[in-house]
Amino acid sequence: MYTDSHAHITCDPLYERIDEVLENMDLVSRCMIMCTTLEEFHRAQKVKDRDPRFKVALGWFPSDAKTITSEDLKALYDLAAAKQIDCLGEIGLDYYWDTSFNDLQKELFIQQIEIANQTHLPISIHMRDSTKDCLEILKKHARTRIIFHCFSGSVETMKECLKMDSLISFAGPLTFKNARHAPDCVLACPIERILTETDSPYLTPVPYRGKQNEPKYVEYVAKKICELKGLDESLLCSQIESNFLSLFQ
């Protein structure tokens, strides 16, 4: 049984066929639904209510920093304090598309970390072209468990992340022929610190690259990790599920 620690199944492309997506998840034992809007969150709550395999995460995405208001932050805090969400995320920094509002991104990131600290929730981190700033902020502010979602950094960066008692989550790019750092990171990462994910509907793994991603395809990320590390698949999947559940104790 596989674990998908990061799936946007309540965003429009996948939610339009949510029943089919859920039916396809017969080999997935755990899944965390990632929500970046309140609409996605309310959809996710309905899914979670009907299926105990799910956890729900909510957070304001870094590229939305210009539009997030104090009311949005209060709404996030209230949901976190009421334990309506299981994880705060994905949050972080993204300097890939636009660096004109980096300071706003940092401010939003810190505010959300503080909400997670106060409500004792783990955080799921988006870190794109922003490693130095992201790690500096986490080292200074984070006092809760950390997931580095869809990790794509170097082994050296991963080792810095592991010092923060974090979990490293690998996604479809690990299976790509042009995968750069990910295979080396898998080899260097203890299995007690590994998670698998799809980031559905994005980053579909080989052999289904080019198709819309969904949680059932997390199987191929797990198989690639087993291939790289020479591990028994059932052993790895059991360990990953245990790693995932440790976030919510």
Score class of each variant (00 low, 15 high):
residue 205 P to W: 11
residue 214 E to N: 07
residue 149 H to Q: 08
residue 104 L to I: 05
residue 132 K to Q: 08
residue 131 T to F: 15
residue 55 K to Y: 09
residue 20 E to F: 03
residue 198 T to S: 05
residue 229 K to F: 08
residue 99 T to N: 12
residue 198 T to C: 05
residue 218 V to N: 11
residue 101 F to D: 00
residue 241 E to T: 11
residue 107 E to H: 09
residue 17 R to L: 02
residue 159 K to R: 15
residue 175 T to V: 02
residue 197 E to S: 04
residue 141 H to N: 13
residue 76 L to F: 04
residue 79 L to D: 11
residue 24 N to M: 10
residue 63 S to D: 14
residue 6 H to C: 09
residue 60 W to S: 08
residue 246 S to W: 09
residue 180 R to S: 10
residue 79 L to V: 06
residue 61 F to S: 00
residue 248 F to V: 04
residue 193 R to E: 02
residue 99 T to R: 15
residue 49 D to R: 13
residue 233 E to P: 00
residue 87 C to I: 07
residue 155 V to Q: 12
residue 156 E to I: 03
residue 228 L to K: 04
residue 109 F to Y: 12
residue 190 P to V: 01
residue 224 K to M: 15
residue 235 L to I: 05
residue 85 I to V: 15
residue 27 L to F: 10
residue 157 T to W: 07
residue 76 L to H: 07
residue 166 S to L: 07
residue 243 N to R: 07
residue 57 A to C: 09
residue 208 Y to H: 15
residue 193 R to I: 00
residue 53 R to E: 05
residue 64 D to H: 07
residue 244 F to Q: 06
residue 170 F to H: 01
residue 189 C to P: 12
residue 207 P to S: 03
residue 19 D to K: 14
residue 162 L to Y: 06
residue 197 E to I: 04
residue 90 E to L: 08
residue 199 D to S: 06
residue 12 D to S: 12
residue 42 H to M: 03
residue 38 L to T: 06
residue 121 L to Y: 10
residue 163 K to E: 14
residue 209 R to N: 02
residue 82 A to R: 10
residue 22 L to Q: 07
residue 92 G to K: 12
residue 170 F to C: 01
residue 177 K to V: 04
residue 196 T to N: 06
residue 113 I to D: 07
residue 199 D to F: 11
residue 182 A to G: 00
residue 39 E to I: 12
residue 142 A to D: 02
residue 111 Q to K: 15
residue 162 L to E: 13
residue 53 R to W: 04
residue 97 W to N: 11
residue 190 P to G: 00
residue 222 A to S: 15
residue 118 Q to L: 13
residue 28 V to G: 02
residue 100 S to D: 14
residue 125 I to W: 03
residue 62 P to N: 07
residue 247 L to A: 07
residue 100 S to H: 09
residue 5 S to Y: 08
residue 23 E to N: 12
residue 8 H to K: 05
residue 232 D to R: 13
residue 153 G to I: 10
residue 245 L to E: 14
residue 231 L to I: 09
residue 110 I to V: 14
residue 38 L to E: 15
residue 71 E to H: 12
residue 182 A to M: 15
residue 110 I to S: 11
residue 188 A to T: 08
residue 221 V to S: 03
residue 162 L to C: 06
residue 202 Y to G: 01
residue 133 D to N: 11
residue 92 G to E: 13
